[in-house]
């Protein structure tokens, strides 16, 4: 999904050239710590089923 701005004048900001790669990278930055935390919790939860 790559929605476009309808702004008549581009806002005064840094150029945002957001490719699919940058989206993947951004999700990895937050996804990896979250995945680590979930895996640690899951391992702990396994004790309930032993």
């Amino acid at each position: 999904m790559n929605p476009q701005s309808n702004s008549p004048t581009p806002p005064a900001t840094t150029a945002d050239t957001s490719s699919g790669g940058s989206v993947v990278l951004a999700w990895l930055v937050v996804g990896l710590p979250l995945a680590w935390g979930v895996s640690q919790t899951f391992i702990k939860a396994l004790a309930l089923f032993k």
């Binding site: 806002p11 957001s18 951004a26």
Partner: peptide
């Protein structure tokens, strides 16, 4: 004003920014 996204910005970049704070 310096955070306003330019044309072509992919909105799926915003949730990771929010997640970085909430995580």
């Amino acid at each position: 004003s310096r955070t306003v996204a330019g044309p072509g910005y992919n909105r799926w970049l915003v949730p990771p920014a929010a997640l970085a704070i909430h995580l």
